[in-house]
Design a protein around this nucleic acid. Structure first.
Lengths: 139, 139
DNA sequence: GTTCATGCAAATCGTTTGCACAATG
DNA sequence: CATTGTGCAAACGATTTGCATGAAC
């Protein structure tokens, strides 16, 4: 009861694992943002009998430990948008809804990379994460 | 040769379809950002023998027609990030690589929703789309 | 020695595709 | 009637899970 985040045994009593160490180390030493499959191929040299299950389970644990994050929207499946004018999105962390914002899109943001050499920016996307009015009201 | 975008027969000679009309109309009348599965359930009332294949095929066509867009990262699979400091991303439209930017994260952006009632903003994410230095150089 | 992590294989989930038939222009 | 769209079912690719064995503490 003294431990916050009792929910789902987060941050729980994890044991040490060579495989997990390697996964984290590999990700930390890679500028790109690899996929699970890339990790699998890479780690098979060190652990010939490695399985995908192990890779995915460890990714999940590392994320729970806050040492890793997934680059993607909350849900697994695609969300569709029929609003074709440029606009920003709000993602509610509680109800997983996605809302269009009528905030003006600031074209100057595209220029923020102007000083970085070589980049060609076509557009940018901005999303806010937090509680939507409906969920924030329930507090 | 006068039609641009000859590649892959984009914008091609599409016929009319009741199912497709409904899909677009439903999406246009919904503030949320439904999934394919939601559309399927919703449209089965009108088309009891509707199939998922039809839903997905029509979503694809509507996107090609530029009347719809998918809210998601380019790739199907999750990308992992071991850089736990807040940072922005650059997504290359050509080679699909994702790069961390050392641009400073601007905390004031969280405040942009300050005038909208009810929203609680925890953080924001900003991603730039375009050509990475490597791909831009090949032009 | 008890518990957690692994390998393996089967299962699951969202999405895609091949095919014969129906609808469109 | 020539062709595109549909329903159905099977295929697909990424991820998850059940179970017996092996590693960690």
């Amino acid at each position: 009861m003294n431990k916050p985040d009792a929910k789902s045994g987060k941050g729980g009593p994890y044991r040490h694992s060579r495989q997990r160490d390697w996964i984290l180390e590999l990700l930390q030493s890679t500028p790109s943002h690899p996929t699970a499959n890339w990790l699998y191929g890479r780690l098979r040299k060190e652990f010939p009998r490695l399985s995908m299950g192990t890779v995915y389970r460890n990714i999940g644990i590392l994320i729970q430990q806050g040492r890793l994050s997934r680059i993607a929207f909350g849900s697994t499946f695609d969300r569709l948008d029929a609003n074709m004018r440029p606009h920003y999105h709000f993602l509610c962390e509680q109800c997983d809804s996605i809302l269009d914002l009528d905030l003006p899109v600031d074209p100057r943001i595209d220029g923020w990379l102007g000083n970085k050499p070589g980049f060609v920016v076509h557009r940018h996307e901005l999303e806010f994460h937090g509680l939507c009015p409906k969920c924030a009201g329930k507090t």
